[in-house]
Design a protein around this nucleic acid. Structure first.
Length: 410
DNA sequence: CGTCCACAGGAATGACGGGCGG
DNA sequence: CCGCCCGTCATTCCTGTGGACG
């Protein structure tokens, strides 16, 4: 492409980008972290959570609680919503309530979770250098110094406990008996029901003084949620009701995941927009479903270790597609020869077997255990994802791209 | 009906790297 | 800052096993 051509190209790209959207008014309201003014079908949960946390406004100790429910059931939205209201009310009443929302998975470590709590009390903590215990000390000191009531929401708290144990939770629940002034209330959110088994009984009993379970949304509830958002997100007339219904139905069939429904709606809108269509049609939704699935798979594939990728490459270049998959032996043979070509030291049979189980678990391949009687017992291994998806993922991989360019694999 | 193939997959062990406590 | 400990990845060695074949 010569320069002037490129210039034209970019010009038109920018212009199209700047031009008013044919579909959206405000796409942001379809994103995960948008919290609307009203949360349909979660009134009971909001009320329940608010009544548990309300005593904090009078400085009275309120129960710690534990919220669980599957993804996309509104746990995060409800707790952020209530926290925001609580904070607002406290400001108005000149109360002494401070709130803090932390996503433990995003924060990552005990240290960073604790540091986030500090920053809610406007206490600066260095990125590193202190021990977690020291940060906790500073937090408690600050808390009693200010004499405030800190309401903490620990989202995806199971991730923290799986990685670091329940020590931090223990320290936090224990703190109230140590502090003369200032208190902490904890709200733990998890989508893993069995998470509770990881907790020390003392922590468990203190954290789950109250419990709220979020049930999956039904199809019609998801529809209401979508309707509310669609009014804000889409131009009038650009989103037919039938399209919206389809999104709701698809998401409902997948354990009532509202987040999924919003994703579908947004991506479908983006696809329609890119097409230059004036309406989001049902086919756009189906396209969106494929795209979301595709993107997710590409992401999974890209993060795979090298040797798993080599295994997939063997399956990809498998010469006999008619046959129902390769046996473990055949796959291993192909794997070793591909390793030779790529100048990589092959792993042992045992290890490959382990990698294969991982791929099976991820749903990337299917490995059925079969017995060939006299001729042994093995697994029949088959690719379970579209070859196109695999190509996309591999071409993004620098290492593999260079191999295929040399034509070595083909 | 026993054998024996071609693996599955558990247990123990080692190399390595990164984070945590002192 | 250093040593220690822990988790991850990989190897080695091992026992277990469904069923066609002789």
């Amino acid at each position: 492409m010569d320069t002037s051509n490129l210039k034209d190209c970019l010009d038109s790209l920018f212009e199209r980008f700047m031009a008013e959207s044919s579909i959206f008014i405000n796409k942001d309201v379809l994103s995960h972290d948008f919290i609307p003014e009203v949360l349909p079908h979660r009134e009971k949960e909001i009320f329940r959570l608010a009544s548990i946390l309300a005593p904090s406004l009078k400085g009275e100790k309120c129960s710690n609680l534990f919220i669980y429910g599957k993804t996309g059931t509104g746990k995060t939205a409800v707790s952020k919503y209530v926290l925001a209201r609580l904070e607002k009310k406290s400001l108005k009443l000149q109360g002494r309530v401070k709130v803090c929302y932390v996503n433990c998975r995003l924060a990552g470590t005990e240290y960073r979770v604790t540091a986030s709590l500090c920053s809610a009390l406007s206490l600066q903590i260095p990125f590193t250098g202190l021990s977690t215990a020291e940060v906790l000390n500073r937090l408690f000191k600050r808390l009693s110094q200010l004499g405030v009531y800190l309401v903490v929401v620990l989202d995806e708290v199971d991730e923290l406990v799986k990685g670091y144990g329940d020590r931090l939770l223990y320290e936090l629940t224990r703190s109230n008996s140590l502090l003369s002034k200032g208190k902490i209330s904890l709200v733990g959110i998890s989508n893993d029901l069995y998470f509770k088994e990881l907790l020390d009984p003392r922590v468990l009993s203190s954290l789950s003084e109250e419990e709220i379970v979020f049930k999956p949304y039904t199809a019609s509830q998801i529809k209401d949620i979508l309707l509310q958002r669609a009014k804000m997100a889409f131009k009038p007339g650009s989103l037919p009701l039938s399209t919206l219904n389809l999104c709701a139905a698809l998401a409902a069939s997948e354990h009532g995941d509202a987040r999924r429904a919003l994703d579908l709606l947004r991506v479908a809108g983006e696809i329609a927009e890119r097409e230059g269509a004036t309406k989001v049609e049902e086919r756009h939704v189906h396209e969106a479903q494929r795209k979301i699935e595709h993107d997710r798979t590409v992401e999974v594939l890209a993060s795979l270790p090298l040797h798993s990728k080599i295994l997939l490459a063997v399956l990809y270049f498998n010469g006999k597609p008619k046959l129902k998959g390769l046996t473990t032996g055949e796959l291993y043979e192909g794997y070793v020869s591909l390793c030779r070509k790529a100048q990589v030291e092959p792993l042992t049979h045992r290890r490959v077997s382990g990698l294969l189980s991982e791929l099976d678990m991820l749903g990337v391949v299917e490995a059925r255990l079969v017995s060939l009687g006299r001729y042994g017992r093995t697994k029949k291994i088959q690719l379970k994802i579209p070859k196109k998806t695999l190509e996309k993922a591999f071409l993004e991989d620098v290492y593999f791209a260079s191999l295929t360019e040399n034509g070595e694999l083909a």
